[in-house]
């Protein structure tokens, strides 16, 4: 017979730094960031960063390109990892596309003006 209360459990055991898991507090690393960048003239670039690992960004890029009728590329960044880069302002389209395909809306962050 075991009494649960009597189980030896040290409440003060070192749990490690509570903030240690994530590199910085309030990290936005789990967000999918959709950003826009100005180019020359009225041209823009849309970047999609922070795509979860389970999605194949190559296939996604292909779908984006077909769906939005724009060109795009996959950029490997040292810090940010793989970033999908599309021509034109595709922010709203990307976010609707992702939410339609089962990505939680709250994980998508649209930046820009």
């Amino acid at each position: 017979m075991s009494v649960q209360n009597l189980n030896s459990y040290d409440p003060f055991a070192d749990e490690g730094d509570p903030l240690g898991d994530s590199a910085d507090v309030g990290s936005t690393s789990d967000y999918i960031h959709i950003r826009i960048q100005q180019r020359n003239g009225r041209k823009t670039l849309t970047t999609l960063q922070g795509l979860p690992k389970q999605y194949d960004s190559k296939k996604l890029l292909k779908a984006f390109k077909k769906e939005f009728a724009c060109n795009g590329t996959l950029v490997d960044d040292e810090k940010m990892g793989q970033v999908i880069q599309l021509q034109g302002d595709q922010r709203a389209k990307i976010s609707t596309f992702l939410t339609d395909n089962g990505i939680e809306k709250s994980t998508i962050k649209v930046h820009g003006f």
Partner: peptide
């Protein structure tokens, strides 16, 4: 010259349920 919102004018009437700020 640069106004990305211009394109959105068409959709103005459609209620945009999407939260673009997401998180």
């Amino acid at each position: 010259l640069f106004d990305p919102s211009l394109k959105k004018r068409k959709k103005k009437i459609v209620a945009f349920t999407e939260d673009p700020l997401g998180a």
